[in-house]
Amino acid sequence: MAKVKGAITVNTERCKGCNLCVVACPTGTLALQPNEVNDRGYHFAYMANPDKCTGCCSCAWVCPDACIEVYRVKVEA
């Protein structure tokens, strides 16, 4: 059956590193930057394992600062 691939973008300046997207992600795609921080000193979220993302939007739904935009595309198996 058609496989689905997803990806997200993070507004890194707006992210406060609250970790709620990481917790909400069902496939363990996300993590907080271990070293990099934004202008406000927050370790912002990023796709640590981008290939695991299915574009399900869980992260975007729970994000308190609307930092995450989600993309999804069908891929022939």
């Binding site: 574009g55 989600v70 999804r72 595309v73």
Partner: peptide, 20 residues
């Protein structure tokens, strides 16, 4: 391919609320 975007009525400013 975009399936979720930041709401258009939400201002693109930093919100003062605590993280989370």
């Amino acid at each position: 391919n975009k399936v979720y975007a930041a709401p258009e009525l939400l201002e693109q400013v930093h919100m003062h609320y605590c993280p989370g």
